[in-house]
């Protein structure tokens, strides 16, 4: 993907950055590991803050595959300026608990200004709501679909947001903020075995008020089932007339009222082409300059 600032020196953050990570599943084998978008968020954080980046995860410490997932992120702490090992704060909770109050309390206490995360989790509901609920609760700003961080200073961070059709938009986000990283961000570095083994996982004993810590009750009457393939939409021709229906079913896809211009000199053809492109706003209207954005 295009990263227009790829050649610029990587911006060093003076602010304290953290990556919120979740456990992932391999899309084919279903094996536990790092989540793809969260790994991109960690990569972005490493290029921004180096080994100062801290990681946080709220999960069930009894879960057998959790260590494997988290080591996937800790193993990314290599190839940096200073050879420190990664550290991850694990906020213990039960499987059915709400992670938002835990994370919010931790973020408030730790004095973090910039939190990076993926857009959606790969396990569980995967609604992508955690970032929004956190931002709402803490009063932070949030930007989603971020492809790259261009600049980061003490007050704000300038990011590029990924739009459809490979386009980019520049946003300035006030700190403290939460940034959801898009899947077109820079690919994450591999997780290495040594740093993964050396990385620390600290279980943080939370001191939440008793009323805050509660199971997530919104999902008690949900019914989980294996994902079904979505049905292909059929092309239905609504016509009272059997002849039209048959014609539509048997028709080969053909011209839909296209305009054919013959007997043109190249100059005339070029003029027609440019007029069409300008009328459809594919190229800019003003003479020499050409912009490919539509």
């Amino acid at each position: 993907m295009p990263q227009p600032d790829a050649k610029a020196p990587s911006p060093r953050a003076e602010v304290k950055a953290v990556a919120l990570v979740s456990s992932g599943r391999h899309p084919v084998s279903g094996r536990a590991g790092r989540a793809r978008e969260d790994a991109r968020a960690v990569e972005m954080g490493l290029s921004l803050a180096g080994a100062d980046l801290s990681l946080v995860h709220a999960g069930d410490p009894e879960d057998a595959s959790l260590r494997e997932c988290l080591e996937g992120y800790l193993g990314m702490f290599h190839g940096l300026d200073d050879e420190r090992d990664g550290a991850l704060s694990l906020l213990p909770m039960q499987a059915g608990d709400d992670a938002v109050p835990l994370l919010a309390a931790w973020l408030e206490r730790s004095g973090v200004q910039l939190a990076l995360t993926g857009q959606r989790a790969e396990c569980g509901e995967g609604s992508g709501m955690v970032g929004y609920l956190l931002a709402e609760r803490l009063g932070w700003s949030i930007a989603t679909g971020v492809a790259a961080i261009e600049r980061c200073d003490a007050r704000s961070v300038t990011v590029l947001q990924a739009l459809p059709q490979g386009q980019r938009r520049r946003l300035e986000v006030r700190l403290p903020c939460l940034i959801a990283v898009d899947s077109v961000a820079e690919a994450p570095r591999q997780s290495a075995f040594g740093p993964a083994r050396r990385g620390r996982i600290d279980t943080v004993d939370d001191r939440l008020p008793a009323g805050e810590k509660r199971p997530d009750v919104a999902n008690v009457d949900w019914q989980w089932q294996p994902a079904r393939a979505r049905p292909k939409r059929l092309k239905v021709v609504k016509s009272t007339n059997a002849r039209d229906r048959f014609k539509a079913a048997a028709a080969k896809s053909s011209a839909s009222g296209g305009q054919v211009l013959t007997d043109l000199t190249p100059e005339q053809a070029a003029e027609k082409l440019i007029d069409y492109l300008r009328a459809e706003k594919i190229i800019a209207d003003t003479g020499e300059s050409s912009a490919g954005e539509s």
Binding site: L160, Q167, R168, R170, V173, G292, E293
Partner: peptide
Amino acid sequence: TLGVIDRGRVAV
């Protein structure tokens, strides 16, 4: 709250 400011499209 004016947390996110649009700085326009970027030429790609």
